[in-house]
Amino acid sequence: MNLADTARPATRPSGRVAGWVRPKTVFLAAVLVVLAVYTEMAFALEWRTQAGRIGPGFFPRVVGIAGVALTLWGLVAAIRSPRDDEVVALEDEVGEADLGKHPRLLAIMVLAAGVFAATLISLGAIISSALFLMVMLSLLNRGRHVVNAVIAIGIPLSMYLLLQTLLNAGLPEGILPRF
């Protein structure tokens, strides 16, 4: 599991080279689909109320149609001049070291966060956040086992003590006893 290191050379080109399907085009297409469904549903809502005033469907229709139009425009622009998003990315990263791209780590983080949220209630706030921290820290902060363990237990515990024990703000205790 030498993820962080292997990820770097393997994935570096994918962010830079224009492949068969460019990420931005895919994202815009996804936005287009969502907005199209949104607009479709907006037409099921009334345009005007019985009294002839602005109805519940008015704003969704305006927003939906404008959104679909702008997304289409953005898609056309993105397909015609693929370099634009490179410019944006470069502008953003001025003065920052290029450390490669890490889509696999990103995917693991997203997945781990999803599992974390899904187990929050059943396992409880302390255990599920400690597990999440342990997994992520063992990937990102390699070799520092003691530090990682202290952080992974310390942060969830202090959050729980502050929010639940002190302020009674409602964190799930899960399989641990409530305190």
């Binding site: 974390f116 706030a125 956040s129 999440f132 820290l137 990102l140 902060n141 942060i155 969830p156 929010l163």
Partner: peptide, 20 residues
């Protein structure tokens, strides 16, 4: 604090904060 520690910690705090 280096990002490799701060990043996961912020996610935990965001999740618990949102939940409460």
């Amino acid at each position: 604090v280096p990002f490799r520690v701060l990043g996961p910690a912020i996610i935990v705090i965001c999740v618990l904060g949102t939940f409460t």
